[in-house]
Amino acid sequence: MKMTKIYEGSHQWIMFGRDEGKPNNIIDTNQYVVRTPNRCLLLDPGGAELFAPMMAAVLHHAPVDQITDLFASHQDPDVISSLGLWDQALTNAKLHAPAIWEGFLRHYSCESIEYVPIPDNGGTIKLESVELQLIPAHYLHSSGNFHVYDPQAKILMTGDVGAAIEGPDTPVFVDNFAAHVEKMRFWHQRWMPSNQAKRVWIERVRNLDIDILAPQHGRMFKGDDVKRFLDWFDALQVGIAV
């Protein structure tokens, strides 16, 4: 599992992905960790297949008893089907996830972990001195969907928005936006169901100061590529399968 530190300040952001041991027939995912002095938050911790490499990678940054928070942007198995395993490994943890998915996510088993339902209008996760904002991203693509914004690190974790499917050795940042567009087009047109939801989300996130836009698949966007992505997405017609 490749680990890339993407922010270092009073706290850290680390991106995990490009797992070389991943079975070929499951989608590659990016996991993110926010590390404060005594706590650790896993964002979209991944599928059950990924649990062991993910846990092993996190142990380079935090002991198990300091993994206190998990966040699931939505209900998909590549996002959170490892929940039942984290549930048995962690003794004092919370899962922050959309309120409307609670009854569904509990199918993965969530007995010792406390489910903290995120209401439709969003909320915050307080991690020691760091306050992360939970930005509504409903219908992008899931009907109950949130992104995580860190105003201090200026990172917006965007789940499936900004995603692209690429090979295992792909760099972690977009280095040629024009070339990258074609890798994202079908994904966004097919997976994102609503032009209206897309417009509302773009209006919302254009007000945020973002240095890094961090999706759950593919490469992250930084600097001017963040605005380029928002402009490109704004102009894209989505929901093409009907």
Binding site: M55, V64, Q88
Partner: peptide, 24 residues
Amino acid sequence: AYNKFELATKMAGDATYAKSMQEP
């Protein structure tokens, strides 16, 4: 879970906090 935890411990190798996996 037990098998996955053992695998995680093995994969963690000499990671700084690998020993914290022993309790789980």
